[in-house]
Design a protein around this nucleic acid. Structure first.
Lengths: 213, 213, 213, 213
DNA sequence: GATGAATGAGCGTTCATTCAT
DNA sequence: AATGAATGAACGCTCATTCAT
């Protein structure tokens, strides 16, 4: 966490630093990101930087915590806490919607965490610590509830499915940044995805044997 | 591309270099990977290295081209060239199967390309260049054929679907490496995934309204 | 010397600063000692510090002068001023005793001056300046008196002897701190040392030729 | 220990580096010594330095090991290994003589180790490790033998005496450097010291009571 | 008198690359 | 073709000191 000197700063200066840091870490891997650049872009001296933050890692972790905080603001808390009161596909839609909204409005912030997973595992472990992969766990939970309530087929591998839903979620978010939001600019796309998840892609009106046509 | 001096080398030496390079780039980001380490593990001198390769980038691109080549060896070429003769879900299964086989047998090679996407974008662009994302294009093509032949529902966004199938493919491959192959150790998992894609996850025997349970 | 603002301070604050400074300089070499730490432990601001002291050197010299002052308090002033009235070995014992008492009661203060001698010589010269090594001079004086009065053998190099007595004095003091006072916990040790100085270590009851046994 | 690249260097270059390093570490505390200075004075690049040595500590330890090695060259090995064959005062004289010769011929090298003791204890411990204070132990051994053979009075605290003889040894060596060898330029001084140790400083022809003259 | 944010020169160290042999 | 010593720009970080409030 930043030192208290950082939080004492004028919000203008704080924002200049945060913005410069996000810009740097969004473009480059942790080890490639240079605090030299951040310092220059935020227009502060090296000495000042180290009066605000313990070190590079400290700033990086802070950025990641900002991301986590901000993400929460996008999610309907009532839904998260009372998942058993909502049906599965409705929850899924809400989740995807808030996720996409966050991604669209904070694309560079999101890039930072996406990079983390490929860093050397020592760094990864230190920063993520023992926190389980929460999004995946959350999916597992609501899938389970969906199966129990009869909404979801019971012949599906739960762990595999939670992995899939979670990776589709991330794929969308990444996509939105790379396509510069031109493609997923309306929420009907989400309906489309959920429809695929729900009903599959097979045309049930026709019959085909496997293999050669 | 490596200089011709590299290709004149004994295959033993060539392999030592390639192996050391794969080991290094699989563990670390491009910029974190040290040619110092590669040199040491391959047991050659720095001077020699620069007689084989233009620079670090040159070696890296070469590795990536090796990966592309090798991947091709795993795929049934007859299928690839005559997609219109096979039905969609059969093709999909073949594709996933060969992909997983490749991932299982070349996990470290695969890690290299997985990292690339999160490097600084300048490097990414220079290395990938104008090459389209071919796997996605290929999916687009067979999906289109599947829709035309009536196997696939026609009310689905093709581009979105190709994106999804492609990302699921990658998710699986990554997963296989991370879980050390304990989970996906038999091919029934692929059947499970394809079944989900085909039929969705909804339990068609029950009826649920949207929203609150 | 500290500025007059320092002496205007409440004695509580003054003591906090002195204590923090002693702690820091006792543990670390002059250049390694951080005024940052002193400031923090004394609970004052950097700005304040520089209103009390010219700079780091100023504080350091002040500490050294405190040490000299305090040392004097341990020594019987009557003895010091009228050395000619006491016999040599009695004086020596008194000196060692008061020195050890000081060392035992102010070990950290003592450590500070012990370090100084090994700092870079520029600093050493600037701080000690033209002050002669007074303890050595004092020894010289009483040795001389001892020779003149017939207590001490006259065939001994006076300068060398004063050096030796002075270094033995310091060795004891250092030892007391390092051995955490377990070893020299009673004053009989001093008698032992003085006996060695007085009578030597040779067993006068036996005769040995030099060289090979 | 330096890397093998260092030992492959021409002896001219090796000596330039060693000399520059001794000069730097003789004048300054470990933490104050700057490899920048060493590099500049030895006329090599920073990159080169780090191809010869692991880091600053590595160079420092190497210097200390050089010192230990060189010291050994000054000592009569026959004497050291067969202490029981020689009488105590002869051994002591030999020891002091070789020590002083070493100090006179390698004064700056000696300064380096003298500083070490005042460094922060973490550094001290890492560098000295579990090596006992060998010189003190050696003194203890020969004193014990001297007592057993009847050369030395048996009513003396052995541990204290070994401490004293060892510190007198160091005091002389230091002195020689500081007085720039003007004072101790002939070996008769050693005889003087040993005579003091042997016979004490008391004038046995006169009687004095303790206390007031 | 007190504060504490700001400074910046300078340190130890890294590593891709060059070049004389 | 092979070597490996040499390079040097650039990084992360430190800390005594200043100065506006």
């Amino acid at each position: 966490m930043p030192k208290k000197t950082f939080f004492n700063l004028s919000s203008d200066k704080k924002n200049r630093i945060i913005d410069a840091a996000i810009d740097e870490f969004a473009d480059k891997t942790f080890h490639r990101a240079k605090i030299t650049n951040i310092i220059e872009n935020a227009d502060i001296s090296p000495g000042s930087f180290y009066q605000y933050f313990e070190d590079k890692r400290d700033l990086y972790k802070y950025l990641l915590s900002l991301l986590a905080q901000k993400k929460m603001d996008y999610i309907n808390q009532d839904l998260m806490l009372n998942t058993e009161e909502y049906n599965f596909f409705y929850l899924l839609k809400e989740l995807y919607q808030s996720g996409l909204k966050f991604a669209r409005e904070n694309p560079r912030l999101l890039l930072i965490s996406n990079k983390l997973i490929n860093e050397d595992s020592e760094l990864y472990r230190e920063i993520i610590g023992d926190n389980k992969v929460r999004s995946e766990e959350f999916f597992y939970k609501i899938i389970e509830e969906g199966v129990n309530s009869g909404e979801i087929r019971s012949d599906i591998d739960l762990k595999l499915l939670s992995k899939i839903l979670s990776s589709m979620f991330i794929a969308m978010a990444e996509y939105i940044y790379k396509e510069k939001m031109l493609y997923f600019n309306d929420m009907s796309v989400i309906d489309n995805i959920i429809d695929i998840i729900k009903n599959g892609i097979k045309n049930n009106n026709t019959f085909y044997e496997e293999g050669k046509k």
